[in-house]
Design a protein around this nucleic acid. Structure first.
Length: 463
RNA sequence: GGCGCUAUCGUCUAACGGUUAGGACGUCAGGUUCUCAUCCUGAUAAUCGGGGUUCGAUUCCCCGUAGCGUCACCA
């Protein structure tokens, strides 16, 4: 049985785009094998905890259509799905490790640890805990515990080396000497990531651990824990880190780090997911555009590349435009209506769809094209002064029209251009700006029909 | 700095050890068009460097270089 998971921590405002990438792959892999996709909230850092972040993360995931099978809200057979409610479990296994001699109490103060680090830095050594407390007698430890002394529980890293297999990169070996005696249980009684992730992945029967490459360095610690606890290892897959065009970790740029930002900017969830799927992976037939269902059927973890791709919004925007153009007009219409929350009526949107569907690349661009339908222009992108004569002639010609259609408007205006001795391009630009305020707009005649004769005349006669 | 990972056009990527190193985005130049966009044509540009292995390396190995990750009582 395939069981995958993502373990977001509620320390930010929302789901990180990198987490969405990881979520997509975890979700798709579970779907592909008829398994389960789980979301486990890792809220063990009480100092960085953000109220409501977990709910926001789940909501964003849902808005992208990556529905978990088990999570904190929905529940499931392996709950609770939030680590702060599983404290006893971590303590229990930490105790087991202590009794086996694989872990030990440490009463060292933050100050002492800080000094240790300082000294190592000056001497250009690896900062490592010196196992000061490993030398304590059983009696001393008991005394300290009795007087409620602040303490942590540390993993006792054994000698030797640790090897694990990564799906994408193959076997990786690390000398245990490069590992520090990791804190497993913090002084506030909460586990560290390393303890919690191992215990929970085992208890929740996670078969595939698919996460970002930044975790690769700590896998040996986890492997050691699995061994000590006599648990079966999951399959490890480390995804390359997504980078910004500045080549940095994708964590700097203002909004673009958060998954919901793209939705707010008018990107379609399907397009974002499609684009993300193409990060470090390619369709076997070299296709760029494909559905989630198709992705699920052709994708495999082994085909993911190891090198870190750059997340390029320019190409995402192109892809989003492709999705918009291929979308069912009625669906697009509903999307736009929702996106604008009532600013544009469903009726108006329906009528403008044929005019803008192949012009907009994001839902947000609709506003740039169609704002003039609901707002009379207050400023004009070209100076209309010198055209007053043509304008009033056009006004008369249009006013006499009995039928208000694309054809009749077109004929009347073409004639007006000829009469005025203006080139079509120049004349129509003037009219476009009068009606819309802008040099760039949907097709003019069609727009005028939608706007109605009365409104058009009104806009023209103002000038 | 130690340890680890990585390395094909500007970007995303393709290429049983044998191809004129392919496609897509972008950019540029044309065509269509009353603007913009769409659409069509064409162009542009890459195997990080050095050694091996091999009849033959983008591909396998080593070294170097560069980038990234990681060295917390953060995840």
């Amino acid at each position: 049985m395939v069981r995958t998971r993502i373990p977001p921590s509620p320390t930010g405002n929302d789901l990180h785009i990198g987490n969405l990438y990881s979520a997509l792959i975890n979700w798709a892999y579970a779907r592909k094998h008829n398994g389960q996709f789980i979301v486990r909230i890792e809220d063990t850092d009480r100092t960085r905890f953000v109220q409501g972040a977990a709910e926001q993360i789940l909501a964003t995931l849902r808005s992208y259509g990556l529905e978990p099978d088990e999570d904190m809200i929905k529940g499931g057979p392996y709950g609770p799905y939030i680590q702060s409610q599983r404290l006893d479990l971590y303590k229990k296994y930490a105790q087991q490790l202590i009794s086996q001699g694989d872990a030990y109490y440490c009463f060292c103060s933050e100050e002492r640890l800080g000094e240790l680090r300082e000294r190592a830095k000056i001497e250009k050594r690896q900062p490592k805990y010196d196992r000061h407390c490993l030398k304590m007698s059983a009696q001393d430890i008991q005394d300290k515990l009795n007087e409620n002394a602040s303490h942590v529980i540390r993993l006792r890293i054994p000698d030797g080396s640790t090897t694990y297999k990564d799906t994408i990169r193959g076997e990786i070996t690390i000398e245990n000497a490069t590992l520090d005696d990791q804190v497993l249980i913090k002084s506030d009684g909460f586990p560290t990531y390393h303890m919690a992730v191992v215990v929970d992945d085992h208890l929740m029967e996670i078969s595939h651990v698919i996460r970002a490459e930044e975790w690769m360095a700590s896998v040996p610690k986890h492997v050691l824990l699995y061994d000590m606890l006599k648990w079966e290892l999951p399959i490890f897959t480390h995804l390359p880190l997504l980078r910004t065009p500045e080549k940095g970790k994708i964590s700097k740029r203002k909004g673009a780090v958060w998954a919901s930002w793209y939705l707010q900017e008018g990107y379609l969830s399907e397009a974002v997911l499609n684009y993300l799927a193409l990060m470090a992976w390619s369709h076997p037939d070299q296709k760029e555009i494909f559905s989630l269902d198709e992705y699920i059927s052709v994708f495999d973890l082994k085909d993911i590349n190891p090198s870190a791709p750059i997340f390029d919004v320019v190409k995402l925007t192109w892809m989003n435009g492709e999705y918009i153009r291929k979308m069912d007009p009625r669906k697009l219409s509903h999307k736009l209506f929702e996106f604008y929350g009532g600013k544009y009526s469903q009726e108006l949107i329906d009528k403008t769809i044929p005019l803008i569907q192949e012009r907009i690349k994001t839902l947000k661009e609709y506003d740039e094209y169609c704002n003039f339908f609901v707002n009379v222009p207050t400023e004009y992108e070209i100076d209309l002064e010198k055209y007053t004569n043509v304008i009033s002639k056009t006004n008369d010609a249009l006013g006499q029209l009995s039928a208000w259609s694309v054809e009749s408007i077109g004929e009347a205006m073409l004639q007006a251009a000829v009469d005025a001795g203006l080139k079509n391009s120049e004349y129509f630009m003037v009219m476009r700006v009068i009606i819309t305020g802008k040099k760039i707009s949907p097709p003019l005649n069609e727009s005028m029909v939608l706007l109605g004769k009365e409104e058009c005349i009104k806009r023209i006669s103002r000038n």
